[in-house]
Design a protein around this nucleic acid. Sequence first.
DNA 1: AACGAAACCTACCGCGTTACAGGTAATGGA
DNA 2: TCCATTACCTGTAACGCGGTAGGTTTCGTT
Lengths: 192, 192
Amino acid sequence: MPYGDAMNARVRSEERRAEIVRAALEVIAERGYRGASLAAVAERVGLTQQGLLHYFPTKDALLVAVLKDRDQWDAVPATQWRVDLLASMVEYNAMRPGIIQTFSALLGESVTEGHPARGYFTGRYRQVRESMAAVLRAEYGERLPNGLTPERTAPLLVAVMDGLQYQWLLDPESVDMPGAFRDFLALLGEGA
Amino acid sequence: MPYGDAMNARVRSEERRAEIVRAALEVIAERGYRGASLAAVAERVGLTQQGLLHYFPTKDALLVAVLKDRDQWDAVPATQWRVDLLASMVEYNAMRPGIIQTFSALLGESVTEGHPARGYFTGRYRQVRESMAAVLRAEYGERLPNGLTPERTAPLLVAVMDGLQYQWLLDPESVDMPGAFRDFLALLGEGA
DNA sequence: AACGAAACCTACCGCGTTACAGGTAATGGA
DNA sequence: TCCATTACCTGTAACGCGGTAGGTTTCGTT
């Protein structure tokens, strides 16, 4: 089976890369991107730092893979989102602090000058705002409170999600993230 | 003038420290705390790295001074805040991206493990939520939309401010931070 | 004039960092 | 069986980092 074995090798390599990306997510959550050393990531998958560089030639390349991984992860078609699914997602997130912490840390770093993830986040947020505006329009039409348009409401929705994450990460016992998010949604529902 | 000159020396020293803190704010805005080197801060005030260590014996000590500086800055008695003043503050902030960037970067870093500013932010947000709840109560009493209490609304208010800051820092031309914040306040005013 | 402290500096240490160079063992296809 | 590729490793270069040690100059006080 010529192709079968070739596949096996490729699959194994791909699995290794995925394993590394997963480890990188963890280390970034713990130390941020700047604080995450290749050696620390490598150690977590049983490699030397130089062994890791065999899979990702530079640290930035690893970060790119991490970001792509996330893109793939929540690439749900925007049309399939509904507001109550957003609430469920927030609830789900509350059970996986690791990933939230990774991307909250990255988002914070990304506003600094010349950060390799800056472009990514700028583009992503532009796109997420668009998606959210579409979701809001599908759900409420133009009947949002105070004559708000979906386009003007979307940044608020996104801001609430992100802002709550920071408060929750810093002090999970004082902040009921899913509950607060539902409160916000209720605020939007008032106009209907 | 024995005491007068003594004061001059002390004042000059204090001024130097303030100058250093200001420089540190800038460098942290550009590179985050982990990425900010003492040498970079020192250079900005015309000192060597070791000369800076004469004023702040460790890097952490400098960070503490930076955080204290901020505390002092917005130590307005909570009772004097009003909701429309919050809107003004957001508007004012939109003209000073540097400081916002500093503390947005620090907030992002602070959720990582063992970050020296983590305790500070945890305590600060707890306190800010309390303040905001008081402000909301003074303004709206218990008549918030949907039967929301001030205590449950405060985290949302804080989250919107922080979340908008990130979106705005990443893409100032796409995000009207003060306008969006006013939109949110209008949402709260609906119930009155 | 003499002294003590403050305000710096030079020199240096030890460590951690990314990345490059080059070698080696295993693997799998021709 | 041979050979190329893959998957690592050791070694090392080159640098930046926070922090220490110890000296020197400046300055205010006595």
